[in-house]
Design a protein around this nucleic acid. Structure first.
Lengths: 232, 232
DNA sequence: TCAATAGTGTCTTTTAGACATTATATG
DNA sequence: CATATAATGTCTAAAAGACACTATTGA
């Protein structure tokens, strides 16, 4: 018989970064038995005096050791009746973006580590719970939103070069982009990036020094940075 | 002291339609005391054996009398600690789209009625609970998604003319569109609409009969139907 | 006939993309 | 010098937008 119940409410965070030229996902050891060998998104139950965004930030900080992600947004809520056999539960999923950290993250809490998204997609890494439903949604959201919001800058540390920014698009979209046309589009999108006036030192192999930029004030990109060839 | 709690989980549905050339929102009488004169989105608590989508459909049907919306999607989840003074609660908001009904909806349940979105935005209609936070998010989602998904067809009954479809974009975006260029863009977006082979009878004032179309198979629009002048 | 609405043609501007060329660094 | 990377220039094609023009109806 159908009745009203109360629910356990959790948040789960898909934190993406671009490292070594590929999209990576932060995963931790699941805290539940029955998932040996699997990894999970950082997350857990919401406390009674915090809102959902605060819960997401708390788990990023305490479970994953990430203190200041450049971008956090709500993704969607998963609430199948059979999600959790112990009690009726819903999970509010979040998408977070951060620059590639210099050191692997974590103060060791629950073995936080970055995993290449390709390994998750291909099944080399197995996800616990229903997190294999959340992750594709997170990737799709990130791919789409890079087109019309200046989100790519959340993946790079300031100041950054346009080659670094291009590397973000290439890693998230999985395509190669023409450097010349990419530059024109970024510069031609007002408020996307602003030059610092400095230049980066070339690598050991030489090369002309790259102009350095920081994040601009724009909230949307005009014109948009469209993905090539979504043709049908 | 912060503790774990269970939550009351509700869904609230922002059902949009285009009627008389303007964007309208379905509202009902709130079921809680303390909101005299205010109206609310249809919604309520999720049962223990249904998922979130099912709950949204149930409230559309039972509370609002809408049986077959053309489009339903999850919007986002609102979970401030003070949302509901009686208990910790979260609300999963949904966006739904439907063609303008011939008759005002409802079998009278909780006084379901369509209200012009302009009256909601301007404050002529007062919303109960935190529904004044949900509605702007719903409108923004609809406006944006009309650009790259064939969602506009969810607002019209099949078969439809291109003038009717254009009226949807004009009502949702609040701008006038050039009929000639609009036509070319719709026809040039493969799978957006398909002609039925029939023509509509002109109105009483005459005019060339319009070609009739139905919804096409495309899931995305290529190229997109971009809103004019989002310039800064 | 005229008024009304649907549909086509044409021209200009903007944007996207391919790709050659120039600029400035290291070794 | 050669090599590497950044930045600019040029050309073509695709798309957006303004707007004149033609087509088919009712009165």
């Amino acid at each position: 018989m159908a009745r009203l119940t109360t629910f356990a409410v959790a948040v789960d965070v898909a934190l993406l970064t671009v490292r070594d030229g590929v999209l990576q996902l932060l995963l931790v050891e699941p805290d539940a038995r029955g998932y040996q060998g699997a990894l999970a998104l950082p997350g857990g139950r919401v406390l009674d005096d915090e809102n959902l965004d605060q819960a997401a930030s708390r788990f990023l900080r305490d479970v994953a050791g990430v203190r200041d992600p450049e971008h956090v947004e709500q993704l969607r809520t998963y609430g199948e009746p059979e999600r959790d056999p112990r009690a009726r539960a819903v999970s509010v999923a979040y998408l977070a973006l951060t620059p590639a950290p210099a050191h692997p993250p974590g103060d060791g809490e629950r073995g936080a580590r970055y995993v290449a998204m390709a390994d998750v997609t291909s099944g080399v890494v197995v996800l616990a719970f229903d997190h294999d439903r959340i992750v594709p949604d997170a990737v799709e959201r990130a791919r789409g939103k890079l087109e019309y919001r200046p989100l790519a800058t959340a993946f790079v540390e300031e100041p950054f070069t346009l080659a670094e920014l291009r590397g973000v698009y290439e890693a998230v979209w999985g395509v190669a982009l023409d450097p010349a046309n990419f530059r024109r589009k970024v510069i031609g999108s007002p408020g996307f990036v602003v030059p610092t006036g400095d230049k980066a030192a070339p690598g050991s192999g030489g090369g002309r020094p790259a102009t350095l930029y920081r994040r601009g004030p724009a909230a949307r990109l005009h014109p948009a940075m469209l993905q090539p060839s979504r043709e049908g």
